[in-house]
Design a protein around this nucleic acid. Sequence first.
DNA 1: GTGAAAGCGCTAACAC
DNA 2: GTGTTAGCGCTTTCAC
Lengths: 341, 341
Amino acid sequence: MSEATIGDVARRAGVSVTTVSRFLAGQPVRAADTIRTAVQDLAYRPSPVARSLRSGRTRSIALVVPDVTNPYFAAVVKGAEAVARQDEYHLFLSNTDEDVDREAAVLADLIGRVDGAILAPTVESDEAPLRAHQAGLPLVFLDREIGGSALFDAVLVDNAGGSRSAAEHLLDLGHRRFAIVNGTMHSTPGRQRREAFLETLTARGIDPAEIDEEVGDFREQGGYQAVMRLLAREHPPTALFVTNNLMTVGALRALHDLGVRVPEQLSIVGFDDLDLAALLMPPLTVVDRPMEEQGAIAMRLLLRRLRESDDVTPRRIVLETKLLVRGSTARPTAGNRTPLS
Amino acid sequence: MSEATIGDVARRAGVSVTTVSRFLAGQPVRAADTIRTAVQDLAYRPSPVARSLRSGRTRSIALVVPDVTNPYFAAVVKGAEAVARQDEYHLFLSNTDEDVDREAAVLADLIGRVDGAILAPTVESDEAPLRAHQAGLPLVFLDREIGGSALFDAVLVDNAGGSRSAAEHLLDLGHRRFAIVNGTMHSTPGRQRREAFLETLTARGIDPAEIDEEVGDFREQGGYQAVMRLLAREHPPTALFVTNNLMTVGALRALHDLGVRVPEQLSIVGFDDLDLAALLMPPLTVVDRPMEEQGAIAMRLLLRRLRESDDVTPRRIVLETKLLVRGSTARPTAGNRTPLS
DNA sequence: GTGAAAGCGCTAACAC
DNA sequence: GTGTTAGCGCTTTCAC
């Protein structure tokens, strides 16, 4: 029965709708008390939809991520939501499941429904975001970018730095046989984490032939299978870098099923911390980064863009990573260090 | 520049807006081809806001949960979103952080903005949902209820059954000294899990004095502190039941810091499975339940209610739990079985 | 099968 | 400081 409109309030208070509107906007009005009473009596709530139609703004923001079930994105959502709430914005949430078509559909659908969107695009060659942008949807990129996206605000992570620290840590321990489980190679983090890891290794004299690669597509199952393949090889690696949290879980599961002892037989570094990482046996060494904060920053960037004129130069914020050395990395054992001798 | 309106399309196609509207609605129209072209040329998209104002429906649903960062709720969100998408509904997400006031504010804010909401209420004595319902917001309860909520659809879990299975498992192993870490005692799961655990124990002859209780408020930190307090006692328990996932993580952290050996010194059962539960040392015994499915069911219930008339009798669906016995539970050791002798 | 016109609930000129 | 009115973009009578 919440059907009271501004007209009802006006009638009950014996004034015009204009006056009520002005009262609601906080402007000085003679009949303030009367109106206030009428509002309460009728349990009047201004219709957000009508306001939106009038103002052209919805006071809501969409957050488009591959998967909320990924603890990293869950944290991002939380951070973003908290900031939105403060500014009285509402949050739409969409999962793309790393599916480009779904992402495109979602974005198209969002136009006119939200004032802006925060997006973790599936692939760097993605066109959908550009179309959405041209259609008037302000966009901020989260964690990933698309090609030639100098137009957009973005909150990224120093993937290269993170991977480098992982590689150096493993090198310093004395490893010479490496493997990396890659994510989606068409995405920013997938590409950057791989490249930096490989470059660091070869720059320090590692023969590329000593670096095995498998793709795990950023999924737990992918990580599992990648590790299964990796360890089935004749000369398995002694050091493993897994480039996201979900794949790390899968990798650990695989190592567990295989009975591989960590770090005695294999050292492992993950990208992204896990809630239970420190409680695993052994505790997991990971590249960590701010998560809720990344969501919060993305939201702030977007809200600021909505506030200011649209021609503000795009801002790119790159957050630092931090290597958390725990127990899953160690020196290679003698047998492992020279697997061929 | 996505400013084309239905009027622009009509003009370009040389027909009236009515005809365009009918065309868009899929009704037979002579100028179909012309209109189709005009729509494409102008990249016309019907305004969702205008449609909502007209129809009184927004095609969006809100999901109000305590915390998306909780893997259980993240899974629920995913399940609910998938169902909503199929029916072309959009999802609003709000975190309440277990705060009654925030929840009330969120609900009030949602009225008129969504067609319905799925809610995991903070406390059973909550009034806000009733007010929202009276204001015309269809509601489905998720995982938790409020007092006298026979009015509402709900998707619950057999908390009593889950706790009973945990208690019986521990009893069967021979434990006589118990402890339970409770959640928010004013919430449905908090209350039910506690009661069933205690009843099962006492029904099997356990002296209530042999059952320690601490409250952890469903938070990780709460679980940590609860366990710290529990194990500081003179005659610590040999069996521990932790009533949700977050608190279980905290509990494990505490046990780790304390150097308590599981299950030798203490058996532990958690409520809700964790992604890494099976990989912990020892693997964690837990009460598991469907998570994404619970979200999906809640969404289906709500959409069905929106479709059917509002006077359908409320439906309550109770999902079954399943005890996953892994390695964190074992017989009490001799020393522990009779701590006083 | 089609068009004119009213109206969803609100805000903002514009006159007073 | 207040009321009248137009109009945001759409759907839907109601005549034709």
